[in-house]
């Protein structure tokens, strides 16, 4: 009986915490974090270092080089796909198209779609795919690079969803959209095959934009 009571109280706490989070309207920061102790002006300061997306170098559908620096002042959404994927990719990109439509005129929001089949998906193939999706300009990039590089980067994006480690290789194919902030920290992961999750992503991007506007995150 007592145990029951305690667990009820615990549950209430959990619920209360959940509520708090949405009330102050900042997004959580995902991934591993480490406290780092530094000495500044003789004082000991403890900082939290968050997981960030490492350096990378790919080529986009226009044949231009894209690195992590190309995104220094951008909020962006990343996903992994291949152009001949018969299963979930059309669903993901039907959903991503709504994200694109919403933010294509917002210069600091970008979309990065990494092909996991670089042998087939050459720059020319990616350009044609982008054209067929109706993508113009530089707000949605389709990126090509060596397969190992892409998979390694995927691991870095997916640390936050990697809880089910059994899915390891399958994760890349699992259709996630990953939201990354201007400091290259992961702020959300979404099931890209679900329209409701896509709507949440759009709302979260707006929340993140508001955070920067109000200088809360920097």
């Amino acid at each position: 009986m007592r145990l029951f009571n305690i667990s009820i109280i615990g549950l209430l706490f959990l619920v209360a915490c959940g509520n708090n989070k949405s009330a102050d309207k900042t997004l959580p920061i995902y991934g591993e974090r480490e406290p780092v102790t530094k000495t500044i002006d003789g004082k000991t300061v403890t900082d939290t270092v968050y997981h960030t997306i490492p350096e990378f170098k790919f080529v986009n559908q226009y044949g231009a080089e894209v690195t992590e620096k190309s995104l220094d002042n951008d909020i962006y959404v990343a996903d992994f796909f291949f152009t001949t994927c018969p299963s979930i990719c059309p669903i993901m990109h039907r959903n991503m198209l709504t994200v694109y439509q919403e933010f294509k005129n917002t210069p600091d929001v970008k979309i990065l779609s990494h092909t996991i089949d670089p042998n087939h998906d050459s720059v020319a193939v990616l350009k044609k795919y982008a054209d067929n999706l109706g993508i113009t300009g530089n707000s949605w990039w389709f990126l090509q690079g060596p397969k190992e590089t892409t998979y390694k980067l995927a691991e870095s994006y997916l640390v936050s969803v990697a809880e089910d480690k059994n899915a390891a290789g399958g994760l890349v194919h699992a259709g996630y959209f990953i939201l990354v902030d201007k400091q290259k920290r992961i702020r959300g992961t979404y099931d890209g095959t679900k329209p409701e999750d896509t709507q949440k992503l759009i709302a979260d991007i707006k929340t993140l934009q508001a955070e920067y506007k109000n200088n809360k995150t920097i």
Binding site: I88, P90, I91, L97, N132, L133, G134
Partner: peptide, 15 residues
């Protein structure tokens, strides 16, 4: 449905 859409709408010029 994954390709042709819930309402048979297709996907841009791809499908």
């Amino acid at each position: 449905q994954n390709c042709h859409g819930q309402n048979g709408e297709g996907l841009a010029a791809l499908i």
